[in-house]
């Protein structure tokens, strides 16, 4: 069995994981093309179509999820907000993943005081609530997408730093690394060619879980008014705006929240699946029909 093909067939066997992939794919699609296609619609005000309830296309298909107090289409705003939310979460995760794992592999591979200092730095960042960190930084620097990405990335670097360091330190003692060193391979090359491929699957699983965390933090910040600023729109900000209309138009706050829940639950489910599928010792479980799975 080749790696890719067998992973895909394993994925197809798991109903929940496949559903998660479909949901995430749909959201990625919305995030990618939504702002281009529906950007105008999302800001177009229509004072004759204020607070329309959802699940009715009497005023046109764009109001299928209702409209807000300015008569804007909730559906269009959801799609555009998906783009904003992803444009913060994805770069933040990628940035912390890259920096954290490179740093962690280097620290674990080097050992000694470099390792100690790196771990201490990670502890310091992690022992401080990330929202609080964001609050302070976004007070001093103004809230903007770039600052938001930066602060979220910095707050999550230690997660990858810790994982990568632990795995690299363990691998450092293994024979194949010794063998490479004997042949005069440099540290950078050993990390790139020997350590990174073994550590990467674990780090990607961590990143999937962390994606949820980053998304939730961004939403919270936007909800609190110190994240994404109008006229931009993100799911968290939509909930905040819908909160004012809760008594008259519940759908404005409900749908963006549901979008967040669907995304985070899907990512969490996919991460859980990948953890089992990526572990050769556990993969057999996924080949069984669901009923017969036994936790040993």
């Amino acid at each position: 069995m080749t790696g890719k093909a067998s992973m895909l067939s394993l994925l197809a066997k798991d109903r929940f994981a496949s559903a998660a992939v479909v949901v995430l794919g749909f959201i990625a699609l919305c995030a990618a093309v939504g702002p281009v296609l529906l950007g105008d619609l999302a800001v177009e005000q229509n004072l004759r179509a204020v607070n329309l309830p959802p699940f009715s296309i009497g005023h046109g298909w764009e109001f299928v999820l209702g409209s807000d107090s300015l008569g804007r289409s909730v559906a269009a705003r959801l799609v555009v907000a998906a783009g904003t939310t992803m444009s913060v979460a994805v770069p933040a995760v990628l940035l912390s993943l890259t920096v954290g794992s490179a740093w962690g592999m280097w620290a674990g591979f080097s050992g000694g005081w470099r390792e100690n200092v790196s771990m201490r730095v990670g502890d310091v960042i992690l022992s401080f609530p990330s929202l609080l960190l964001a609050v302070v930084v976004l007070y001093v620097f103004t809230p903007s997408v770039a600052n938001l990405i930066a602060v979220l990335a910095v707050a999550r670097i230690p997660v990858y730093l810790r994982t990568a360091r632990a795995e690299a330190a363990e691998l450092r003692s293994r024979l194949f690394v010794d063998a490479a060193r004997t042949f005069g391979t440099g540290s950078g090359a050993i990390i790139r060619r020997h350590i990174a491929p073994s550590v990467l699957p674990t780090l990607l699983t961590v990143a999937a879980v962390d994606f949820c965390f980053v998304m939730l933090t961004e939403s919270s910040l936007s909800f609190l008014g110190i994240g994404i600023q109008p006229p931009d729109v993100s799911w968290g900000l939509m909930v905040a705006q819908g909160r004012q209309e809760l008594q008259t138009a519940w759908w404005i706050a409900v749908f963006p929240g549901l979008a967040i829940v669907f995304t985070t639950v899907s990512a969490a489910m996919l991460a859980a699946w990948a953890r089992v599928a990526g572990d050769p010792g556990q993969r057999w479980r996924l080949t069984l029909p669901r009923k017969e799975r036994i936790s040993a």
């Binding site: 949820c212 939730l216 939403s219 919270s220 909800f223 609190l224 968290g236 909930v239 905040a240 706050a253 963006p256 929240g257 967040i260 829940v261 985070t264 639950v265 969490a268």
Partner: peptide
């Protein structure tokens, strides 16, 4: 429960 945004 761990994936629901608390504010929502």
């Amino acid at each position: 429960a761990a994936s629901i945004p608390d504010f929502w």
